[in-house]
Design a protein around this nucleic acid. Structure first.
Lengths: 187, 187
DNA sequence: ACCTGAACACCGTTCAAGT
DNA sequence: ACCTGAACACCGTTCAAGT
């Protein structure tokens, strides 16, 4: 017969991956509908699995949020890396700020994950590191060009991302707030 | 016997006020302990009243938060009014920013109320109006002195308060973030 | 008038039982 | 190995019954 332990384990894994994808899809639908609560029971029901399965894959709600945010987080990292290669470093900074805003607006889970002080998933830790690395390179270039206050760190930039997102959320004038921040970080 | 409808109604009101104070004290203790959840049942139990009584006084949790925040909110309004009378308008702006941060740090309920888009209590609406009025006067003085971008409104300042608070919460360098904002709002 | 607290619905979380 | 879902504890909210 085709099938031994390997095939069996693979089919288990394949099934597990399918179940995981179903849960993420269900959770994403809720978030897209504006509900960041993500009740585990509700996610389970929407995904057609038992609650225990949700907990097996995502030990905490924050772990679930991180998994949801990962995709957009990777796009933000990409944007940061592209900003580094921007000929005009000031333009790079401006693009990065816009990208940070846009991705947080596009996925509220990302806004939560970016302002969290620690991560549940290895994947997130990796993304945080990659973002910090790209931002560090951008800051270094900006310092050399005299385009930024030299004491600003990648951690500060992350905090400023979160604050800017909140400012935009509370107030109305996105362009003004971006501009205030861009001017404020100049030397 | 002493007592007619008036006395009776007054004693009811007095009792009601006492009960209300007990609930607010209980809620404040929970918030001070770092718990912004404020479960209505828990507040009721801690205050030694029935849940229905909590709901009678505070129709929603946000109404409860507003009542909690009112005291600090009034202090913030005072700070804004003092900032207006500051001989050096730039110093006034800096003091106001610091006061906004300090009061939000001192009462997390205020941070929530400041970033809420609408209010449950009349009292809060009044405080919001008073703050906007003081800030408007300060902005007017700052514009005349050429100390601020002229397009910034009191609403923008409220949004910037909220964003600054978040930045500080996520990052570590309060002084840097205050300074970035102060520079950013200059013309 | 105002307060109480039982009642119902819902969510978090665990864990014995299934496949 | 992995999944299920009953079970228990807790919270939101309402409303009939008390004073």
């Amino acid at each position: 017969m085709a099938g031994g332990p390997t095939t069996n384990s693979e089919s288990l894994r394949a099934d597990s991956a399918r179940v995981r994808a179903r849960m993420l899809r269900a959770a994403r639908e809720r978030v897209a509908a504006g509900d960041l609560d993500l009740p585990m029971n509700a996610v389970a029901k929407a995904a057609g699995v038992g609650v225990g399965t949700v907990y097996r894959h995502f030990p905490t709600r924050h772990a679930l949020l991180e998994s949801l945010a990962a995709e957009r987080f990777a796009l933000l990292v990409q944007a940061a890396e592209q900003a580094v290669t921007c000929p005009d470093v000031a333009v790079g900074l401006a693009r990065l700020l816009r990208a940070a805003l846009e991705h947080q607006r596009g996925d509220p889970a990302l806004a939560v994950v970016l302002s969290a002080s620690d991560n549940a998933c290895q994947e997130t830790t990796e993304l945080v590191r990659a973002l910090a690395e790209a931002v560090d390179r951008l800051l270094e270039r900006a310092r050399e060009a005299g385009a930024i206050r030299p004491e600003i760190t990648a951690e500060d930039v992350r905090a400023l991302f979160c604050g800017l997102q909140r400012t935009v959320q509370v107030g109305g004038d996105t362009e003004l707030y971006i501009d205030i921040l861009l001017r404020g970080i100049r030397p």
